[in-house]
């Protein structure tokens, strides 16, 4: 009961923060809106609507990189958000090179291509319904054997497996990061003295395949790879950190 009460209170506080952020945005106070929405994210609220609105607030305040990162987060949670995709497109169109998003690594993504348009929550719900149906059908079959019940249970089991896999795939942390700053040096190694291999521009999306200390090995969609400082990147995946202080580029 206590836990339920505390959850309800927390939910109420989250709603208030969301409304306050939206209100600040509508009044043109984008900095305040960012603070409110970021606070929600700090409270472990990972909702596509929060990230969409946060992306809008960053966009309005002229910070393209965190805007792109937050739109990507929203789409990671719900790929069917047409509005968010539209806004992401607008942001990317304003970047220097308009680099396309690098392909993410992993064998699960090609396997679950068919569920690209389904949100993680929907996948989980369908997986649970299939799971419950499977056990229900098995129980009915046990109590009152009827033709086709075993086959129906097998189909439900397959559905549960497929959508559970898709849910796990959806919730797998994204390895995409967004360059946050004008002309970020990408080096051959993890040291400031290393030769600069190439440069990233503000808003360029990269794939992070390795992290060592304060350095992340990044790969662009055009195949170049090197080490960039993590403070120059906004990571799309959890824990959904806000952009580093002082790095935001109006």
């Amino acid at each position: 009961m206590t836990i339920l009460l505390s959850m309800l209170l927390a939910a109420g506080a989250h709603d208030e923060l969301f409304d306050a952020g939206s209100q600040a945005y509508l009044q043109g106070d984008y900095a305040a809106a960012i603070v409110q929405f970021e606070e929600l994210v700090e409270h472990a609220v990972a909702d596509p609507a929060v990230f969409h609105n946060l992306g809008n607030a960053y966009y309005r305040s002229g910070q393209i990189a965190p805007a792109i990162a937050n739109y990507e987060r929203a789409l990671m949670l719900d790929p069917g958000l047409v509005d968010t995709r539209e806004n992401l497109f607008r942001c990317v169109a304003q970047t220097e090179r308009r680099l396309s998003k690098p392909e993410t690594a992993g064998w699960m993504r090609p396997l679950f291509f068919w569920s690209d348009g389904i949100s993680a929550r929907a996948c989980l719900a369908i997986a649970l319904v299939s799971w419950i149906s499977m056990w229900g059908l098995l129980a009915v079959r046990r109590l009152r054997p009827t033709p086709y019940l075993r086959r129906a249970a097998a189909i439900a089991a397959l559905g549960a497996l497929a959508f559970a896999g898709s849910y796990l795939n959806r919730t797998e942390p994204s390895d995409i990061a967004v360059a946050n700053g004008e002309r970020i040096a990408v080096r051959y190694g993890t040291d400031e003295s290393e030769t600069v291999h190439f440069e990233l521009y503000n808003g360029d999306r990269v794939r992070v395949d390795q992290r060592t200390g304060d350095w992340a090995r990044v790969a662009t969609s055009d195949g170049r790879r090197g080490w960039a400082h993590v403070h120059d990147l906004v990571f799309v995946g959890p824990p959904f950190d806000a952009p580093s202080a002082g790095k935001a580029t109006p």
């Binding site: 939910a11 709603d15 939206s22 929600l40 409270h43 990972a46 596509p48 929060v50 649970l128």
Partner: peptide
């Protein structure tokens, strides 16, 4: 212009919250 803000959903999604009921429902 860019697409506007999204309205607050009936229940804001929190990963922790989803984690609690899924094992029970399973």
């Amino acid at each position: 212009d860019i697409r506007p803000l999204m309205a607050r959903p009936p229940r804001l999604n929190s990963p922790g919250r989803a984690g609690a009921w899924v094992p029970v429902a399973s």
